[in-house]
Simulated assay, not measured.
Amino acid sequence: MIALAPAPAAAIDDAIDDAVGRIRERALTLGGGFPTLGDAIARATEGGKRFRPALVAASFQAFGGDPLDTPVLYPIAAAFELLHTAFVVHDDVIDHDTVRRGIPNIAGEFRERARLRGADASGAALLGDAAAILAGDLLLHEACRLVALADVAPVRREALLALLDDAVFVSAAGELADVEHAVSPEWAEPDALLNAAHDKTAVYSFTAPLCAGAVLAGADHAAIAALERAGSRLGLAFQLVDDLIGAFGSSDQAGRESGGDLREAKRTPLVSLARDSGAWPQVSEALAVAHTGPVAVREAQRALDESGARLRLLALIAGTLAEARDAAEDPSLPPAARGLVDTLVAAVSERVP
Rank of each mutant, 00 (worst) to 15 (best):
F238I: 08
P335R: 11
D151E: 15
R117K: 11
A318F: 10
T201R: 02
V170T: 15
D252I: 13
A208F: 04
P335T: 12
D220R: 10
R115L: 13
P334W: 00
E142S: 08
S307Q: 03
D220C: 04
L270A: 10
P335F: 04
D342H: 11
D92M: 01
P185Y: 04
E109H: 03
D326R: 15
A153I: 05
A57N: 06
R325P: 07
G339M: 07
E299I: 02
L270E: 05
A226T: 07
V89R: 04
W280S: 11
D66H: 05
L314F: 12
Q301R: 11
V88P: 02
D13Q: 11
L227N: 00
F60G: 07
A197R: 01
L314H: 12
F80Y: 15
G255W: 09
A143L: 09
G339R: 11
V241M: 03
A86D: 09
A217K: 00
L82Q: 12
A3W: 11
N195F: 08
A121K: 05
A222R: 14
H96D: 14
H84E: 10
A217L: 02
R263M: 00
A318L: 11
E81Y: 02
L139D: 05
H141A: 15
G38H: 01
A208Q: 03
A318N: 15
R117Q: 12
V352A: 12
G123N: 06
T85D: 06
G319M: 10
S284M: 00
V179L: 15
S59C: 12
A318T: 15
L193C: 12
G308W: 07
S250T: 15
H181C: 07
T268G: 01
M1F: 11
R302W: 07
V289A: 06
L270Y: 03
I23Q: 01
D137W: 08
S184D: 15
M1V: 14
D305M: 10
D39Q: 10
V297F: 01
E109Y: 00
A324T: 09
D13H: 05
W187G: 05
G235T: 06
G213Y: 04
A62C: 13
I16T: 08
P353K: 08
F80T: 11
A162D: 15
T29Y: 03
A143N: 10
E306M: 13
T320F: 06
F169T: 13
A208R: 06
D13M: 03
H84R: 05
D261N: 00
G235Y: 00
E329I: 08
E257V: 14
